[in-house]
Simulated scan of single mutants.
Amino acid sequence: MTVDRLFQMFPPSPDLIESSPDRCRACAVVGNSGNLIGSHYGPLIDFHDVVIRMNTGRIKGYEADVGIKTTHRIMYPESAIDLDNSTHLVLFPFKIQDLEWLIKAFGTGFSGRSYMPVKSTIKANKDLVMVTNPGFMRYVHEIWLEKKGKYPSTGFMAVILALHICDEVHVFGYGADRDGNWSHYWEKLKDKKLKTGVHPGSNEYNIILQLAKQQKLKFYTGW
């Protein structure tokens, strides 16, 4: 029932740049690591056809290091932000409430509860909404991560999604900062022993390094 309503509200097929012999779809996946500070990657990131950002990753005040272009923003109800009219909202659902939130946030407003406050309504272009099959997260957890950690991070999911929809994948803003903390570039770190919680951060990071070594993607380490 919920899925039927979802398909009535949002496009049934994704709005993607199609693959063709004369086009190379270059994608920048921009993580939220503190190692972006001072990187001056902004212009390089903006040069890509597709720029994927996630959750509440900020742009204002950090343009020189993170760029200004966003074509796709991956989020959960718990990390939702308003988007402009040309950015795709990409939802990685893993519980039925995520789908219910999406339907209601574009309509009368969502009033359910989660493990943290959830935005009741959202501003975004309904025609650019993309929802991955919930089986995608399971596939990433079981095949790519061999069931390590409770579930994959949004960042790792974004990299695997990019490998599926892009010809060239360039990865920015992943891994620890220069002090070994897994921090966000827009936050002042209070907990100096900050690690990755329920996500298998070092496993994910090592897989990205391995993919870079195999030239499946290009990895920019920052600073």
Results as ranks from 00 to 15, higher is better:
Pro11Phe: 06
Pro21Asn: 05
Ala176Asp: 13
Asn203Ser: 11
Ile68Arg: 15
Pro21Cys: 02
Val129Arg: 01
Thr121Val: 02
Ile122Tyr: 09
Val50Lys: 00
Asp179Lys: 04
Thr2His: 15
Val118Ala: 12
Thr70Glu: 04
Phe106Ser: 06
Arg138Trp: 12
Asn35Asp: 00
Thr71Trp: 02
Phe172Met: 07
Asp127Gln: 11
Leu161Gln: 01
Ser39Asp: 04
His141Pro: 05
Val131Asp: 01
Asp179Trp: 06
Phe172Thr: 09
Ser13Met: 14
Gly149Ser: 03
Phe10Val: 05
Gly112Asn: 04
Thr196Ser: 11
Asp4Asn: 09
Phe172Arg: 08
Gly107Leu: 03
Asp179Val: 15
Gly107Tyr: 00
Thr108Trp: 01
Gly135Phe: 09
Tyr115Arg: 03
Ile96Gly: 14
Thr108Tyr: 09
Leu83Glu: 04
Ile81Phe: 11
Tyr220Met: 04
Val3Ser: 03
Thr221Pro: 02
Ile81Ser: 14
Gly201Phe: 01
Asn85Cys: 05
Ser13Gly: 11
Thr196Asn: 00
Ser114Asn: 07
Met75Gln: 00
Gly57His: 01
Cys27Ile: 03
Arg25Trp: 02
Ile74Pro: 00
Asn55Met: 00
Leu194Thr: 15
Ala80Tyr: 12
Ala124Arg: 00
Lys123Tyr: 13
Ala26Thr: 03
Val118Gln: 03
Asp15Trp: 15
Tyr115Asn: 09
Ile59Met: 01
Met9Asp: 13
Asn35Cys: 01
Ser13Val: 12
Tyr115Gln: 15
Glu204Thr: 13
Asn55Pro: 14
Glu168Lys: 04
Val90Asn: 00
Leu163Gly: 02
Lys150Asp: 10
Lys193Gln: 08
His141Asp: 07
Met75Gly: 01
Val50Met: 13
Arg138Ser: 15
Lys218Phe: 12
Leu16Asn: 01
Phe47Ser: 05
His72Asp: 05
Pro152Cys: 13
Leu163Pro: 15
Val140His: 13
Pro43Asn: 04
Cys166Asn: 07
Pro93Lys: 01
Trp186Gln: 10
Met137Asp: 11
Arg113Pro: 11
Ser33Leu: 03
Lys193Arg: 11
Ile45Met: 02
Asn85Met: 09
Met1Phe: 10
His170Gln: 00
Phe47Asn: 12
Ile96Thr: 04
Arg73His: 08
Lys218Ala: 07
Gly135Lys: 02
Val66Ala: 01
Phe110Val: 09
Arg53Phe: 06
Lys69Ala: 03
Gly201His: 03
Ile165Ser: 02
His164Asp: 15
Pro11Leu: 04
Thr2Gln: 03
Lys119Ile: 13
His199Lys: 06
Lys213Thr: 08
Gly109Asp: 12
Gly175Ile: 10
Tyr205Asp: 15
Lys147Thr: 06
Ile207Leu: 12
Arg113Gln: 12
Gln8Arg: 06
Gly112Lys: 11
Gln215Trp: 13
Pro152Trp: 11
Ile208Trp: 02
Thr2Asp: 06
Pro77Tyr: 04
Thr56Val: 09
Glu146Arg: 05
Asn133Tyr: 04
Ile37Thr: 12
Arg53Trp: 11
Asn181Arg: 01
Ile59Lys: 01
Asn35Phe: 10
Ser120Arg: 10
Arg5Pro: 11
Gly31Lys: 07
Asn35Gln: 11
Ser202Thr: 15
Arg23Asn: 07
His184Ala: 07
Ala212Glu: 07
Val3Gln: 05
Gly42Trp: 08
